[in-house]
């Protein structure tokens, strides 16, 4: 039986599509279960939101009124689905702190108090920070990994290994303060506070984002660099690499043309995983630099127990984390040559 090239491609597409759809469904299911978990965890609170807002000295009537306002008199399952449907439509409920503030001033709580309105601008700020970090960190660490593999066991390799191991094991705030000390206080090159506001020019915005982005780069580089190095070195023992070397190719060319394409799957995988890790790192770094992102909002809300905001931020972080892990998974499937060229 003759198998044409066309049917092969079709076969490949259907296999990959099937796997990707499977993973997507699994990811959605995970997200659904995680949302239940977040909702259930918050409902473990002693008393309820109404008491949390009004404090200990509230009259029963006031508590009752707020409870009715927020729909707390309904069973948890109904409330969960209301929350979920709202969240999917972009309505994440109202912030306690903002509602409190609005009622205190006597203003109409209206649009300002909604969690979505609070999160939206900060979400883009955080995305900007993560984007800048990825743009610096990914090329830098892959290049470093290639160089470390090329000059393996040299002084450069050992130094890079020691340096990255130290930077990955330091807490984010230590790296942040060291960078502030040297690049903002002793040598005023970059601003130490990132007061980003809307309508800021790109250049200025970039300058203010650079220090937090550099800190995050230091945090994620180590893992990516080590994995790139390991993935390439793993391949260097294979016969086809030896062949290329015996042909008289330069070592750099052997690595870039022959080893790198086959090492791409694990590298892409680890890049996506580290971008997922950025999400956790962003929280501390945003607090240090007072960067108006979603991580800072999250920490502030945790401290004042603004439950709807905490829930919403948690859901967003979890969704991004699951999505990036899913991407890592799918990328490594797609870049697997055995799947790309089925027998």
């Amino acid at each position: 039986m003759i198998i044409t090239e066309k049917t092969r491609t079709g076969e490949y597409l259907s296999t990959v599509l099937k796997i990707i759809l499977q993973r997507l469904a699994l990811g959605l299911l995970t997200l659904f279960v995680v949302s239940i978990l977040i909702f259930a965890a918050v409902n473990l609170l002693p008393g309820d939101f109404a008491q949390a807002i009004l404090g200990q000295g509230a009259t029963p009537e006031a508590v009752e009124a707020i409870r009715r306002d927020l729909g707390l008199d309904q069973p948890p399952i109904t409330r969960y689905f209301q929350w979920l449907v709202g969240a999917v439509q972009g309505d994440l409920g109202n912030s306690f702190a903002q509602a409190n503030f609005a009622s205190f001033v006597g203003a109409d709580s209206g649009n300002k108090a909604s969690v979505a309105a609070q999160i939206a601008p900060r979400f883009w700020n955080t995305m900007f920070l993560a984007g800048v970090t990825a743009l610096i960190a990914v090329p830098f660490s892959v290049l470093l990994g290639i160089l470390a593999a090329l000059y393996r066991n040299s002084a450069f390799d050992k130094f890079a290994n020691m340096f990255t191991l130290s930077s990955i094991s330091s807490p984010e705030f230590f790296l942040a303060y060291i960078l502030i000390l040297f690049l903002a206080v002793l040598n005023p090159v970059l601003p130490s506070l990132s007061n980003i506001y809307q309508g800021m020019g790109l250049g200025e915005r970039l300058e203010k984002t650079l220090l937090p982005a550099l800190t995050l780069t230091l945090v994620v580089t180590a893992h990516m660099m080590r994995m790139t190095r390991a993935a390439i070195i793993n391949l260097l023992a294979s016969p086809y690499i030896e062949m290329a070397r015996l042909k008289g190719m330069s070592p750099m060319r052997v690595i870039v043309r022959h080893a790198l394409p086959n090492a791409l799957a694990p590298i892409i995988n680890v890049v996506a995983l580290n971008l997922a890790y950025l999400i956790t790192g962003v929280v501390v770094v945003e607090v240090v630099f007072v960067y108006p992102g979603i991580g800072q909002l999250f920490v502030d809300s945790v401290k004042i127990r603004d439950i709807p905001v905490v829930q919403a931020c948690c859901l967003i972080f979890a969704a991004a984390y699951i999505l990036l892990n899913l991407t890592a998974d799918i990328m490594s499937i797609v870049s697997n040559p055995r799947l790309r060229h089925p027998k």
């Binding site: 995970t30 997200l31 279960v33 995680v34 978990l37 977040i38 965890a41 918050v42 473990l44 609170l45 002693p46 008393g47 949390a52 997922a276 890790y277 999400i279 956790t280 929280v283 501390v284 999250f298 920490v299 945790v302 127990r305 439950i307 905490v310 931020c313 948690c314 972080f317 979890a318 984390y321 699951i322 892990n325």
Partner: peptide, 23 residues
Amino acid sequence: VDVLMAIPSLIFALLLMTIASAW
């Protein structure tokens, strides 16, 4: 464990700490 690991650990810890501080 799969589900618990799907939430970034620092974020999850912060969420649970909110609840713990109320407790």
